[in-house]
Nucleic acid binder design. Sequence first.
DNA 1: TGTACATCAGTGAACGCGCGTTCACTGATGTAC
DNA 2: TGTACATCAGTGAACGCGCGTTCACTGATGTAC
Lengths: 197, 197
Amino acid sequence: MASRRKELSHERIVDAASRAIRREGYSGVGVAEVMKEAGLTHGGFYAHFPSRDALLAAAMDRAGQDGADRLSQGMARRRAEGASPLRAWVETYLSEAHLTGCEGGCPVSALASEIPRQSPEVREVAATRVQRLLDALGQVLPASAGGHAAVAVTSTLVGALQLARALGDTPQGRAVLASARQAILDQYDHEDASPAH
Amino acid sequence: MASRRKELSHERIVDAASRAIRREGYSGVGVAEVMKEAGLTHGGFYAHFPSRDALLAAAMDRAGQDGADRLSQGMARRRAEGASPLRAWVETYLSEAHLTGCEGGCPVSALASEIPRQSPEVREVAATRVQRLLDALGQVLPASAGGHAAVAVTSTLVGALQLARALGDTPQGRAVLASARQAILDQYDHEDASPAH
DNA sequence: TGTACATCAGTGAACGCGCGTTCACTGATGTAC
DNA sequence: TGTACATCAGTGAACGCGCGTTCACTGATGTAC
């Protein structure tokens, strides 16, 4: 029967790590830094996880949940303003808030190119998160979209966000986001127009 | 007047590093390993570069040239078989060879999510490479494609390759590549069909 | 052509530092009586 | 309700290791005469 106190510490550690990996990358995250951010000293770490890799795996899972939660909130707000599910999703994912707010965003776009180089346990969790992202896209695409649309649009979202971040907080970076949004909506969001059209 | 011998060593170092960053990521590359791969000992490194970061920047530039060269070769082969410029480019970029051959491929897709966390000198070179990739896409798209197409298709290519690699060498990974190829060509490659249609 | 010398690319040992991991200890918590 | 004790989450010093970087030295190259 694990103590409540330990559970709370565990939560803080995983939370801190889930933000750290998105901010610094897997390779930029150290045990000591995460423990400090969780208000603990690094020595106690191995009472919570058998290894740094086990922490990274748990952090990736948590980051996926957290990113999905926040995206859902942004999406609900835009839905309330009348946007179609696809438009709401695309405008949230490719928002300027997501461009600059890596730490609270989607871990797939924050970490994609590092995933193939991680340990099997991290890759496994990451693959599940990629699959969930593809599934989420399938749910917001209109029925008229082809069978390849979910993969294509997810790829565009993840790729565009990374290219924009690589270009930095510049006009070019923001232009990448704008172009990607436009291109996706032009192609897939036809039934979002008012019914009269 | 630098000696010919030193120039040759310099080339080998940059070449080794350009492969290493694509294989292991920026953070996975060490000075000693690169020097060893170039057939030298690590002590001599600082006669060639002022710092590890300077090496990473040079390696990124070289990787961009190398990746572009190889993509051009694959594209020329497919062009010779009758493919349109866009089809040739897309089938080369999203080929199984590029999926598994990270080391000789496009450094943007190999490193995208690590770029924002690099030193200014590395980010600058990387941003140039992103821009070149966007320009290259602009040249293979048909004139009928909209103004956002180059950004959208580049994002899809980079995103799809990374998602496929994240899913590993599995049926799902290969399915991502196939779907992305199909979706891009369905949308933008209409003038590739025989003129009679 | 041959010898003496200067240059300098490359060697290998050493440095300080930060990292993941271990472990003996502490002190707060909560149960037994 | 109060005291004695067991448990165990967390502390902090220490470990081995690999890294980026430095530096005194070596030995091959090529020029001067």
